[in-house]
Structure formats: structure tokens, C-alpha cells
Design a protein around this nucleic acid. Structure first.
Lengths: 204, 204
DNA sequence: TGACTATACGGAGACTGTCTCCGGTTAGCA
DNA sequence: TGCTAACCGGAGACAGTCTCCGTATAGTCA
């Protein structure tokens, strides 16, 4: 894995200034976590991350009380990218079927950050206490945007709920990295969902 | 959980007679595993199972080298029940939509034996080395049966593959027990899949 | 019935991972 | 320069997995 754009991760909303040494360690931990998660998936050893960052385990757990807090920190700019992709899918002005295909493909890409990430995001979707919960809401908003676009074309099937669609695609993502399945297998599955979402007039 | 029909689990294909003490411990382990898995899901502690069965850890690991071997043993009559349900769904002679709804519901029930079982089965689907692999094939056969029935009615959408349908339903099952979602949420998701599978003539 | 041996038993303990606690250190400020 | 709140680190408690090997015994044969 190449250098992963050492973004200095400015604290997001709680603007309490961090002591210099704390910030230094925070950044080292983020970098190490990127490495370890990329290698071993989202279940990688936390102690290993601490070791690789050159800090003690205590330091890691102080900064990130739970594994989800760490993953959350790794996803800083993730919501922006997700939103951008959904806007792009809509702006392209393509027919519903193509739009959905493009969007779902992007969706799959985002949700499979590392091995195990999809399952993590999926689980956080219904757990407001999870640090990742907000990311899921962003994903939901993005998905709504695309489905609203499709609805305007009049080709969205009656009664289709964005939330269920999101869940379906997420669970395909989870399956795909649990079972090491590639796009060759997921594409037809997404196809079934697209057919389940769109009315059949002018089905290609 | 009531007494779970203390089936004496006659060894399946390898008919080598088991020593009496070994059989005794085998049965105790199965019973203990049923208990522990029911309480803690498929990730329950193996040592706890051994302890509860009143045997050493070594005994457990000799009988069941991996966790999957144990789960496999717990699923002895599972394939029969799955096959029976698929035959029933077909024999009822209902319209495709109802048939699929009934079958998928049964499918979901079978695959969620305990918490975590769905994920386990899902993962085994592509791992011929797993002891659970054969069970997955049985599930596939049953699903084929139902889809063939639907195909005969002429309402199966062109290009729909039984395998992908099975994967979709399985991943909904995994999601449903990962995220503690009930039928109220899974039903609409299954609905989307049914719509994606059937052609729209005479859609209800 | 009394050996004999293949088979099975069990639990100590090595190993891995999570997470906490607290004595020691240091950045930032007056 | 000195003070203190904030931070550091790693030993170690805890939990789970899995193996190894000395001990026990079921089943058999004379």
C-alpha cells in the first residue's frame, strides 16, 4: 500500500485544541490503522496497530475507546465522497437503469473500505450509539437522492422504500467480502434488485 | 429451550463403530453445544461447551476439530427439513408470487438456526473444504426446485439464476440477525427480490 | 476371567487478542 | 523557571482457541 495521503485529520466538531504530543500520536495511530486494516481487514489486531504506531496500548484506547471509534476516524472524508458520487449519478441525467447501476456500483465500492467494513457499517445502521451511525445516515441521504431522481422519471415501482434498497445493497456488499465474491457475481444480484425497483415499461 | 429430541446421532457415512465412552461424550457435547449456541449464538465459547458437557477441551477438539464440524453435526436432519419445505412449497400449486413468498420465508427460518449461523452458512457456500458445504448444496437444490416450478409458469424473468437468488436471500438472512431486524423489515426486502425475479404480467 | 492394546480422556499451558490501571513524563502556561 | 493538567506506556488481568501427552479404559482374545 502506498502512502495514504497523510491528511492531518483536523478534529471535526469538538474543536478543543489537542496537546501537540497527543495530536502526534493520534496521527500516527490513524496511519498505522490504515496499514493494518488494509492488510488484515477491519478485524485486525488493535495492539498491533498501537505497536506499529510506536505507542502503548493505553494510548490507543484513550484516543479510540472502541474499534468503531477508530474506524470512524478513518472515514473522515468518506461522507463527502459518498455524497459526491450520488450527485454525480443524478447529474449525469442517464436513464433510471443506468443511473442505478452506476450508483450501486459506487455504493459497493464505498462500503467495502476494508475486509469486514461492510459488515461493520451494516451493523451500525441501526445503532445510533455507534460512532459510525452518522456515516450510515449520509449513505442513506445519498441513496435517497438517487432514488428520488428515479422516482421523478415515473419508473420507480410503487412502494419501494429507499431504506430497504440501501439494506439490500449493503448486504450484498457484506456477502461479497465475506465470501470473497467479485463483481462478476455481484452484478447479476444487483441486476435483480434493479429489476425489483423499476417498473417494467421499457425494460432493456 | 425444551428437550431437543435426544437423537443419538448415528454416525452418517463412516460407519466405523465408536467406542461406548466416545459416543457418550459425543452426545453430551452435541447437547451442550445446542444449549450454548442457543444462548450465545454460533460464536459461543467452545471451552464452555466442553465444560458444560463435563469433558475436557481435548475431547471436544478430537470429536470436532473445528467449530464448523460441530455446527455441521448439529445440523444432521437440517437438509431433510429444507428439502421437505421446498417440496411443500411446490406441491401447494400456488401462483408464483405466493410460492416464492412462502419459500423465502421458510428459507430464512432455516438459515437462521442461531445467531451467527446465517453468516456461517453463507461463508461455507463457496468453501468446499467446509463441513457445512454440503448443507449449502442441499439448500441450493431446494431453491432450484422452487425456481424451476416458477419457471414452468412462464413468469420467471429471463436470465435469473437460482444461485444468485439464493445468495440474495442468504445475505438478507445474515443482515437480519447481524442487525437484529425482524420480519417487518425483511418482508419488503424479499418483496423487492420477488419483483426482480418475476416478469410483470399480472403483478399484484 | 485376566491380561493386553488400540482408543479415548482431560486439563495444563502456550498463544493471541482485548482492555484497564496507574506510576511516570511532559507540554503549555504564568 | 516551575507548576500542573494532560498525556504516555506497558505490565498484567481476562477470555478464548487449540495442542500435547501422561493416564485411563473399552473391547477383545486366550
Amino acid at each position: 500500500m502506498g502512502s495514504v495521503t497523510a491528511d492531518t485529520v483536523v478534529s471535526e466538531d469538538d474543536a478543543r485544541p489537542m496537546r501537540a504530543d497527543a495530536r502526534r500520536n493520534y496521527d500516527k495511530l490513524i496511519a498505522a490503522a490504515r496499514e493494518v486494516f488494509a492488510e488484515s481487514g477491519a478485524a485486525g489486531s488493535l495492539d498491533e496497530i498501537a505497536k506499529r504506531a510506536g505507542v502503548g496500548a493505553g494510548t490507543l484506547y484513550r484516543h479510540f475507546p472502541t474499534r468503531d471509534d477508530l474506524i470512524d476516524a478513518l472515514m473522515r472524508d468518506w461522507t463527502d465522497r459518498v455524497a459526491a458520487d450520488s450527485e454525480e449519478a443524478v447529474a449525469a441525467g442517464l436513464p433510471p437503469r443506468e443511473t442505478l447501476n452506476n450508483w450501486f456500483e459506487a455504493f459497493l465500492g464505498h462500503i467495502t473500505l476494508h475486509r469486514g467494513a461492510a459488515a461493520k457499517i451494516n451493523a451500525a445502521m441501526d445503532d445510533p450509539a455507534s460512532p459510525i451511525y452518522r456515516k450510515c445516515q449520509a449513505l442513506g441521504t445519498a441513496n435517497d437522492r438517487v432514488l428520488d431522481y428515479v422516482r421523478e422519471t415515473g419508473q420507480l415501482r410503487e412502494g419501494v422504500d429507499s431504506r430497504h434498497v440501501m439494506r439490500l445493497v449493503s448486504s450484498i456488499a457484506t456477502l461479497s467480502d465475506d465470501a470473497r465474491i467479485g463483481a462478476a457475481e455481484t452484478a447479476p444480484m444487483l441486476g435483480i434488485i434493479v429489476d425489483g425497483i423499476l417498473v417494467d415499461t421499457a425494460s432493456s
